[in-house]
Amino acid sequence: MSLHTDTVPFVRESGNRRPTPSSDAKPLGGVPAALATWLSNHDFPDAHSRGLEGTTPLMLAALHGDDGLVEALLAHGVRVDALDDTGNQALWYACLGGAPAPILRLINEGAEIDHANDDDITCLMQAAASGRVELMQLLLAHGASEGLYAPDGRNALDMAAERGFELLRVSRRLGGGTKDAPRAPERQRADPQRGAISAHMAGDKAA
């Protein structure tokens, strides 16, 4: 999954294709009954296997916001840094789901908060492009860097500013406004906007 502005994407589960057991596979008899049932219901032969697009049980549990399952999988020894076929880790899926508990648990378990996927997009950039300010605040409060840049030269604050202008234009159209909303400033004139957002985020950190 690359950069998008939808809140939560549809993630295909195994379907007719059986997930691939990992070399770290352990028999389901060695996991708690509730976890074993969940794995079986989602066609995972074990806690370390992979489904479509390289999705692991931990990624799916994180996307669903099920912190109890995330905790159980981590206790069973699954890798917090495992990547899917496009270079996303479980923290990315947790951020797509938006539930704070799995996000915090994965960060505390060592998930790299500034990990960039194969498109060089971080969780903070994804949150910014989606207009999810609360998620941005959560990630920044736990050490996410706002100074990393995507291949197109934008950082997370640039993406947040552009998303804000986009939402303003939409709201004016829906409200029957006769004039277009202001266009997003060009990058060379964007420093005041980024500075204002930076100051806001810095204030949240200090608080």
Rank of each mutant, 00 (worst) to 15 (best):
M1C: 00
T5Q: 13
P9S: 00
P9M: 07
F10W: 03
V11P: 00
R12D: 01
R12P: 01
G15M: 06
N16K: 09
R17D: 06
R18F: 09
P19K: 10
T20D: 03
S22Q: 05
P27H: 08
V31E: 11
L35K: 07
A36H: 02
L39D: 05
S40C: 03
H42K: 09
D46R: 10
R50P: 05
G51E: 02
G54T: 06
L58A: 01
M59Q: 08
M59F: 00
A75E: 12
H76N: 01
D85N: 08
D85M: 04
N88R: 14
L91E: 00
W92I: 09
Y93D: 04
A94G: 02
L96K: 08
A101V: 13
A101Y: 06
P102M: 04
I107Y: 07
A111I: 12
A111N: 08
E112C: 01
E112M: 04
E112F: 07
D118A: 11
I121E: 02
T122Q: 14
C123I: 12
C123G: 10
C123D: 09
L124A: 14
L124C: 14
M125Q: 09
A127Y: 10
A128E: 07
R132I: 03
V133P: 10
E134Y: 07
L138T: 06
A141R: 15
A144P: 15
E146F: 15
A150C: 05
A150K: 14
A150Q: 12
G153K: 10
R154H: 13
N155S: 09
A160W: 07
F165G: 15
L168Y: 02
V170S: 05
L174T: 07
L174Q: 08
G175V: 05
T178Y: 07
T178H: 12
K179P: 04
D180K: 12
P182Q: 15
R183A: 07
P185T: 05
R187A: 06
R189N: 08
R189M: 04
R189G: 05
P192A: 03
G195L: 01
I197L: 15
H200K: 07
M201Q: 13
